[in-house]
Design a protein around this nucleic acid. Structure first.
Lengths: 150, 150
DNA sequence: ATTTGTGCAAATCGTTTGCATCTGA
DNA sequence: TCAGATGCAAACGATTTGCACAAAT
């Protein structure tokens, strides 16, 4: 299931890009290592995106970063803890990570693993039950499952 | 993570119970084997419930059924395919199965793995976006994530 | 110099599969 | 009888971990 292509386009970051990322990682108490900076670049470069550990791994090697799967997992989890990423739960076998930290929901295409953001206000939840006593509602996730139209 | 207790209460089904279950399995084209009948009994005995493969396994052995994990998984998947169960996706590492086939939503307590049904009409979804072209919305899942109040 | 991160391989967890053996219809 | 079900163990895929080495502060 690994998108194995050989576009070994090396990535070079501009000074500003490098700087912006550095801020971000530093303020998350994370050391600036080659792999973290490049993964952060891949993740935060252009707008919001969704990744899978395996997907990010393939992408990283494709741009010429020498990195191990363990580091991918460790890094994603660190970013998660640091609040740089959010997890999206739509599949019971794979973890998805989302760079969009705002309040929003998702479309999910099971067949392809494709995730699409749904803006928060595109869904009107006019009534939700209160939490059972002893609990608080910590979050409301809405997943619109898509299937290919026939 | 295995709730290991030794309440080896053997289960004996009444004639009517046996009969009701038999109908159900037969109409799903499933043979009446000892393990299937007993698992079905555990699942459908009292109202709607949620199980995890491991949870059901522990429960089955606790009531004295000799069964393997493989059979638990196979059976759950068969029941799923046969439409006797539904899957609930709330955790990216574990699969949950729900005997409630109706339209409804869930509360989920991550710390304990507890799942609680939320009636369909307890949540008012007054507006949902239409599917991107080429797709249909096959389902809408709402998960209210609970945390222990402090 | 010290602390923290990295790569690798081995370990783990949930789940699936192959195959020889049973068992229900 | 014999297709289909079961148990076991091995295989699997995703993820985590232990440890020696390397790099960042």
């Amino acid at each position: 299931m690994a998108a194995q292509q050989s576009h070994s386009k090396k990535i070079v970051l501009s000074a500003e890009q490098e700087e912006r990322l550095s801020q971000r990682l530093r303020s998350a108490q994370l050391r600036l290592t080659r792999q973290r900076v490049l993964l952060a670049h891949l993740l935060f470069r252009d707008g919001n995106r969704h990744v899978t550990a395996d997907g990010l791994y393939e992408e990283a090697r494709m741009v010429g970063l020498s990195i191990s799967q363990a580091t991918i997992y460790n890094t994603l989890n660190q970013f998660l803890e640091a609040g740089l990423l959010r997890e999206v739960i739509v599949d019971s076998h794979r973890s998805y990570f989302d760079t969009n930290l705002g309040d929003h929901h998702h479309f999910y295409v099971e067949e392809t693993g494709q995730l699409i953001d749904v803006p928060h206000d595109a869904i009107q939840l006019t009534q939700i039950p209160s939490a059972p006593s002893g609990f608080d509602v910590a979050g409301v996730d809405v997943v619109l499952r898509l299937s290919v139209a026939k």
